[in-house]
Design a binder for these strands. Structure first.
Lengths: 336, 336
DNA sequence: AACCCCTATGAAAACGTTTACGTTTCGCGC
DNA sequence: GCGCGAAACGTAAACGTTTTCATAGGGGTT
């Protein structure tokens, strides 16, 4: 239509040069008029690039998931990459199938899955594809890893409690298999030891449910001497604690301070508003995506970059005796 | 490697027949041993099928988004389809770019966007691609539409209030531009009229924020005669109402019943627990996906199917004077 | 035994790009 | 005016499948 060969069209549209500014202009105009769109399959057949990255995510619901995708999508779009997601896998087999199905359709992989232990990775990861593991703890060094700084967050919370005079701080743990929980527990220990309180470790097991937090708080009330703070491994358990303490007539934070982890939306609406640790989840996704893009661009040399941590942030509200207002707020929250 | 031509490999792996069971077996074994994966770009170059569907979603956060994707992903996987998402678009231009970028990479489109009005659709929708519009109100009949049954949900809530003796029911509206809100308002009107209460329409404008709900409730308290129920167009405003009413010492639901819409997770934790209308969001995504798959399979004839509504569900808790327990629960909720 | 049909298989074209390589054209210096 | 080099452009191969068409072989029917 523009009286040129397909080669010139390719050159003009891709801006590779070797074509007059005038003809390039003409070709572009014709292409726009014809609503011509290059056939991406043909292109990636020869280019061996799909400009797509695959995200293998666990079957999780709620804010965490959407924030993560949001961060990933943002970073991907900024680099002109597309996003192929696969989000709900009940078991490892399903996840493996999804992973295989992405084989060849993507330039790189973002993997976050509870089923993804070392053997799973070794087994199912398409070898030539660059990949970034999100929040997965594997000894191998074949892939980049982006983690949540659970330990640092936990340390910050405990440190804050100590700074405000608390000495007998109970930690309510979560499911043992969970890596985040282990790291949070480690942070709790480290902070105690850093303050010369290593002997005061008090750990109660929970299972992440509100109910287990409720029971844990009841157990705390039976302790002698009575602890002066509870740090739960997640917000739901912390909220369970608040219920139990309220029921027992214990003043929070006067008698016992309470802290959680995650900053779920509800945290600021319970009474008293819950102090907690917020994880910058979108940042986690963005970082992972950027790291992956680097790996793809750098090509074969593939220097595995050092592990990166997504930062956390201490959110001080009334439940830990910090400086936040103790009254329930009715105005919209600026940090919503 | 199996001493056969590429043609036979293709036939064997795709199960098209025309090849002995024995050779098929042999080819499959060799393929598995070699970890051979067909090059999807080459395949879709000739097949003109990508086995991928694109989802254009608004820049929304939280549970709605993740539930929607979850439903879509589930239905897509069940059909062996991949999911290309693009989720965060600040303005219409960004959304249009994302839409164009998907051109040719997908067999069909799922579109949900606040920017997607009629002209946007007309302008940017790749014509040959089947598409399903989610919760978008367009007069044209070129695409299938899947909607939320906002109207039915609102009717159910109002009917429930009427059934429990409420007569002066205030509706707190949301942003005017929002289609869901208009439909919820329509449902409110219809239910009143169906009960011979058409003259009792009381509408206060809000903006979906907790604060606007707070102010609306204060306005309600100034009315004479005082209304006996408030139905807010979303849960956040309803929660704002609860704050204002609690502050004014008004008994809920004794003096004034309160209902919301959306069933956000927080709804069951406020005091008293909030009655609301739940939207089956995952179902919305699933339905849209299935509809799209049908359109793709049916090929060119493309009978535009009738619009479909995702069902809603009335969730009765204490705030509307229903039968739910009025005490705050500490046990984990089975409907979480 | 000749014929025919049917099935299994191979050869080759086609899909729409990119890119290496040739060819033309143009400008410029002698 | 001639030659030469560089830039612009065209030709054709290549990417890895699917699919059409051709071919060979085997078994059944006459």
């Amino acid at each position: 239509m523009a009286n040129v060969s397909v080669a010139s069209v390719s050159r003009a549209l891709n801006g590779h040069g070797g074509v007059t500014a005038e003809t390039q202009q003409r070709i572009r105009e014709v292409a726009a008029r014809l609503r011509y769109v290059p056939h991406s399959a043909a292109r990636s057949l020869i280019t061996r690039r799909t400009h797509t990255i695959g995200a293998l995510l666990p079957d999780l619901h709620g804010a965490f998931f959407s924030e993560l995708i949001r961060g990933i999508d943002l970073a991907a779009r900024a680099r002109g990459l597309h996003l192929l997601v696969s989000s709900s896998h009940g078991d490892a087999e399903e996840a493996a199938t999804a992973l295989r199905a992405m084989q060849g359709r993507v330039d790189g992989l973002l993997v976050m899955s509870p089923h993804a232990d070392e053997s799973f990775i070794e087994e199912n990861m398409p070898t030539p594809t660059p990949a970034v593991l999100i929040n997965i703890h594997v000894p191998g060094h074949r892939h980049a890893v982006v983690d949540i700084d659970d330990r640092g967050g936990a340390r910050a919370m405990v440190q804050h409690l100590v700074d405000h005079g608390r000495r007998r701080i109970v930690f309510i743990a979560g499911p043992e298999a969970n890596n985040d929980v282990r790291e949070r527990e480690n942070g709790y220990r480290e902070a105690l030891e850093a303050n010369g309180l290593g002997a005061n470790q008090l750990i109660i097991n929970g299972d992440f449910s509100e109910e287990s937090g409720f029971r844990a708080a009841q157990a705390v009330l039976g302790m002698n001497p009575r602890p002066d703070a509870i740090f739960a491994a997640n917000d739901m358990m912390a909220i369970g604690c608040l219920s139990a303490l309220a029921e027992a007539g214990v003043n929070v934070p006067g008698d016992i301070a309470v802290g959680g982890f995650d900053d779920i939306p509800m945290a600021r609406y319970v009474s008293p508003p819950l102090s907690t640790v917020r994880v910058r989840i979108a940042e986690l996704g963005e970082t992972a995506m950027e790291r992956l893009a680097q790996m793809i661009e750098s090509g074969e040399d593939m220097v595995v970059p050092p592990r990166h941590m997504a930062s956390t942030e201490l959110v001080v509200r009334a439940s830990c005796g910090g400086t936040a207002p103790s009254r329930r707020r009715h105005a919209p929250n600026s940090d919503a």
